[in-house]
């Protein structure tokens, strides 16, 4: 397993669509949930994840090999999400109260599929109440098991900023979990 780099190379160089399908299979859920931590909506995050795969399928950007393929893919997804937030800020935002309840149930399904363990689900739900930056850094480090350096690359921050952000996010998450009566030892 080379984190999808060889699959992407096969798709880009030989046009192997199965390789792209494999990448989508491996990274769809993680990327969607990560992007959800940015845009705050799992449906939007899913669309943005799809946009991310379409972008690498049409433009076929070259992976410079500076980091892992996952880091590179998440960076592209993050840029797309930020662009989306910029565009959305120019339009009238729909209050979250008016969102469809069925969409929330979809999000729950994704969470349950991806976050196998109940603890992780609880932590993820607690994370949803934190600020986007805290959500991102916690997601990347705890759920995607990225190093601080990789998380810094995805979030376009320095390693020291990530460390500081992670410290504050962890503290905030702990207090949030304590408020909900859950004590997560790992934190």
């Amino acid at each position: 397993m080379d984190n999808g780099a060889s699959s992407y190379r096969r798709f880009r160089d030989n046009g192997d669509q199965n390789a792209l399908i494999g990448i989508i299979r491996d990274y769809k859920d993680g990327l969607t949930l990560y992007l959800a931590s940015i845009v705050g909506s799992i449906q939007t995050a899913e669309e943005l994840a799809e946009d991310t795969f379409v972008l690498i399928g049409t433009k076929k950007p070259k992976d410079k090999g500076k980091g892992s393929f996952r880091t590179w893919l998440y960076t592209i997804g993050r840029n797309i999400a930020i662009d989306h937030l910029r565009k959305r800020s120019r339009h009238i935002e729909v209050p979250i109260d008016e969102s469809d309840a069925s969409l929330i149930s979809d999000e729950d399904i994704v969470e349950s599929e991806y976050l196998k363990k109940e603890q992780k689900m609880t932590v993820h739900k607690a994370m949803r109440k934190l600020s986007p930056d805290y959500q991102q850094v916690l997601w990347l480090t705890y759920f995607e098991d990225m190093s601080n350096k990789e998380a810094a690359a995805v979030m376009k921050k320095s390693v020291r900023s990530i460390e500081s952000l992670l410290y504050r996010a962890r503290k905030s998450l702990r207090s949030q979990l304590e408020m909900e009566g859950f004590d997560y030892e790992k934190l």
């Binding site: 669509q17 989508i24 994840a49 799809e50 795969f53 379409v54 399928g57 049409t58 979809d106 999000e107």
Partner: peptide, 14 residues
């Protein structure tokens, strides 16, 4: 919520 096959189809179609 789409599964990966639906998303792959959408991606390939696009």
């Amino acid at each position: 919520m789409k599964n990966y096959e639906e998303m792959a189809q959408n991606v390939l179609r696009r």
